[in-house]
Amino acid sequence: MIVAEQKPLAEMKTLINGAENVLVVGCGTCVTVCFAGGTREADIVSTSLRMATKLDGSPQQVTHSTVQRQCEWEYLDIIEEQVKAADIVLSLGCGIGVQAIAEHFPDAWVVPGLNTSFLGLPTEHGVWEERCAACGECLLAVTGGICPVARCSKSLLNGPCGGSENGHCEIDPDVACAWQLIVDRMSSKGKLDALLEIQPPKNWQNSRDGGPRKIVRQDLRLVEFED
């Protein structure tokens, strides 16, 4: 899932500064699951902003609504009237949700209430960890299902570097050394030999480095083809 964190309330206040009517829009998918921008959080954020701006002596109207999925235009239609009535929309979606609202409602002014952090999963209650860098060319088959691009601090394809100690990365004792995990897993599967192959330089063209990415599936498109 996409894992995100709320911006500090003070920053949100700055972002909505000057607006009479503010609409906080939550999202029912990833950010609900990571407790950053679901219905509950949208309610708390709008209440907090109402109270905070009132205490500051310049109260702002803050309402909230949550859509099932902020990252698809069709799910945004139901908030059209609320968006029109708002001076500022504070999105509690990920960066995709913020942009989907801006694209779908060109007249609206949308600001982000979250910092979109990474693609990951919860490893225990209240803890999320990064797992995928969306590099566009999956290498998990050669590294035993553990991604060095996302999980090694240096994205080494032929690790480990000299900074691995007792299973953790030298940058932080709380960060696991991805290459220790890879070596352990490949050993346990009797596939350590596979790690002796030199992985060539990666093709980063399919990653963000190749420019903004786009996938076109002609088989799924609804356009009519010319003869």
């Binding site: 570097c161 000299g162 299973g167 002796l196």
Partner: peptide, 16 residues
């Protein structure tokens, strides 16, 4: 780094 972890893999990394 002969003594860094995973220590048993170090000679193999050198081989690479």
């Amino acid at each position: 780094a002969p003594f860094a972890d995973p220590i048993d893999f170090r000679p193999y990394r050198l081989a690479k």
